[in-house]
C-alpha cells in the first residue's frame, strides 16, 4: 500500500502552480488559486484607524477592497518610496478579498509538491512573523517563501495593531 502510494506521487509529481513576486530582496510565493487578478495599482484612499501597512481602500472593477503593503509589514522596506508599487495582486478567500502591492508583474512558476518544504521543518522557534510562512520552495539557486496571505490580515493581527494605535492616540 505504502509503496504504491509513494510511487503514485512520484509518477504524478503533483505539480503546483505558484505566483512569485518580490518583496525586499526576497521572493515570495502564493498558490495560484488564491489570486484573482493582477491590476495596475489604482488610486488608493487612505483609511483611518488602520496600521500603516494598510494603505487604504481602492476601487477595483467596482469592488472596494483594502490594499496592503507587505514590505512595510515585514519590515523589508528600504526607503520611503511608494513609487515603485506599480501592481496590485488581488487575492481572495471565502471571507476576505484584498489587494497586495508588488513592484513588478509577478511570474508564474511550476513546482513539484515535493519541492515545497513544510515550514514546521524549517523554523522551530516561535515569533509572530513565522506563522505567515507556510513553507519554503528550494530551487537550484532560488529560495521562495510560501505565504499564508490571509493570516497576515487576520482580525487579531489587525486589531492588535489597531489597539496599539489607540493607546498612542490617547496619550
Amino acid at each position: 500500500m505504502e509503496a504504491v502510494k509513494e510511487q503514485g506521487i512520484k509518477e504524478n509529481q503533483q505539480k503546483s502552480q505558484l505566483i512569485v513576486f518580490r518583496l525586499g530582496d526576497e521572493e515570495y510565493g502564493l498558490q495560484i488559486g488564491q489570486i484573482k487578478e493582477v491590476v495596475p495599482t489604482p488610486h488608493i484612499t487612505r483609511l483611518p484607524q488602520t496600521p500603516a501597512y494598510v494603505k487604504g481602500v481602492a476601487n477595483i472593477r467596482g469592488n472596494i477592497i483594502a490594499v496592503v503593503d507587505l514590505e512595510e509589514k515585514f519590515g523589508l522596506k528600504q526607503e520611503e518610496d511608494d513609487s515603485a508599487n506599480n501592481y496590485t495582486l488581488v487575492v481572495e478567500s471565502d471571507e476576505v478579498k484584498m489587494g497586495v502591492l508588488v513592484r513588478e508583474l509577478p511570474n508564474t512558476l511550476n513546482v513539484k509538491q515535493s519541492q515545497i518544504e513544510d515550514s514546521a521543518n524549517i523554523i522551530q522557534d516561535g515569533g509572530a512573523d513565522q506563522s505567515y510562512i507556510k513553507g519554503i520552495v528550494k530551487l537550484d539557486d532560488r529560495l521562495i517563501i510560501m505565504l499564508d496571505i490571509f493570516k497576515t490580515m487576520s482580525e487579531s493581527e489587525l486589531n492588535g495593531v489597531f489597539k496599539n494605535n489607540k493607546v498612542t492616540e490617547n496619550v
Binding site: P42, T45, P48, V54, V57, A58, E95, V96, L158, N159
Partner: peptide, 21 residues
C-alpha cells in the same frame, strides 16, 4: 468589508464619478 470592517471612524464608502473611493 473584511478585513477592514473594524474601522469605526468610517461608516462606509462610495465610489465617486472619477472612480476614486
Amino acid at each position: 468589508k473584511k478585513p477592514v470592517d473594524f474601522v469605526r471612524y468610517v461608516s462606509g464608502v462610495t465610489i465617486l464619478g472619477n472612480g476614486k473611493v
